[in-house]
Design a protein around this nucleic acid. Sequence first.
DNA 1: TGTACATCAGTGAACGCGCGTTCACTGATGTAC
DNA 2: TGTACATCAGTGAACGCGCGTTCACTGATGTAC
Lengths: 213, 213
Amino acid sequence: MTAADKKNRRYHHGDLRNALIVAAAELIEEGGCDDFALVDAARRAGVSSAAPYRHFRDREDLLQAVVELASWELSCRTRKVLAEHPRGSRECILALGKCYVSFVTDHGAFYDLLWGDSSNRRQGSQPPPTGKREGFGLFLSAVAAWCDGSAVTEQDPLDLSLKLWALAHGLAGLAMHHQFDLIDASPDIDELLASAGNSLLDGVELARDHTKR
Amino acid sequence: MTAADKKNRRYHHGDLRNALIVAAAELIEEGGCDDFALVDAARRAGVSSAAPYRHFRDREDLLQAVVELASWELSCRTRKVLAEHPRGSRECILALGKCYVSFVTDHGAFYDLLWGDSSNRRQGSQPPPTGKREGFGLFLSAVAAWCDGSAVTEQDPLDLSLKLWALAHGLAGLAMHHQFDLIDASPDIDELLASAGNSLLDGVELARDHTKR
DNA sequence: TGTACATCAGTGAACGCGCGTTCACTGATGTAC
DNA sequence: TGTACATCAGTGAACGCGCGTTCACTGATGTAC
């Protein structure tokens, strides 16, 4: 914060809790969720290093709030896509995948925060963020709607959802962590996703012939 | 180390460099690669905290050695699978995917180390580990061999490889980080991979119809 | 085969740093009367 | 409308801890003569 900011600022911040969550989210975005320091978030919000303890039990508690924010944003984006595409349509499924990838691309650090190692270690202390369950629930029901309406029968919506999720998750992760650069490839992620997604949606019978030998 | 160990141990370790790499790998496996402390690796190898500096420039240098070890192991496993399956066959491709997933499952922490956030931040300082490029190169050529031999024409081996990689990568990551637990699913990963992999191998023409509108 | 000496691979103590967290405090706010 | 007071939301200084790294050192090893 600049000197002018300091002058203008009132003693009471007004919305410090949210300011800290946003500051923390930005810091995580910049440096990864393991390097994130509570002190830095306070600094960025323009308060002393002790101030956060008026709003959060400890560092972990603030981190959890960021997770809630992130998963809430993902489920918002998901609902938006659902509203924009006819329920049960193929484009709807593909658009959801694209939405997932762009969410990861837009908020790189949230990938690890939500689905990475640190998210994993944080379990047990707190229940999983509601947005995560909700997001997948929305996706699953969209896939189920497609299964209902499609000519392809006997497709298990849960299995299909998991496959599509894994595909989008893998593509997003590899792209976001610049792994394609390392092998000298620079694919169009959206196109790969659409093409592979269509294969998954269509390829049921053929696949079944092979796996059931 | 126990008192007995200390008694038996010679002043010169003999193979401290490798012992440190292994200790570091174990620690990373247990606590993630961001929590890993050089001091702990030294402790585990039974030497003072200054000893590692006889073999590594700094913490990062040791971490890089662990990456080399990990990527070397992956390319070894890959070669083993290639030797066990006929070149150009469908099972070969599927077995490679299964191999990738089991590598991740066996060495959870290497996932983030090799393809995660920290791997990303580490770039620039050092060239990417050779094992990574080599591993993908082997996979790509296996896929290309399948494309050559299969009835399906006009399939770009690189694109197909990336799709299959992303699928296996996503499945492995989600499974390893226990994300399926959070949504109350406990799928058979190998079966999902085989089924979805077959769809990707087969679904070319159908997919093309849809993407090219 | 024995000895002097250079080199190597460790030790242990210490440093500096940054971070999480606590504590006594103080300025601002809202409310009862 | 004014005042007393409880409560809230900050401050700033300090702490303890663990880690990365350095430094002067010393025990072990190998080699030239």
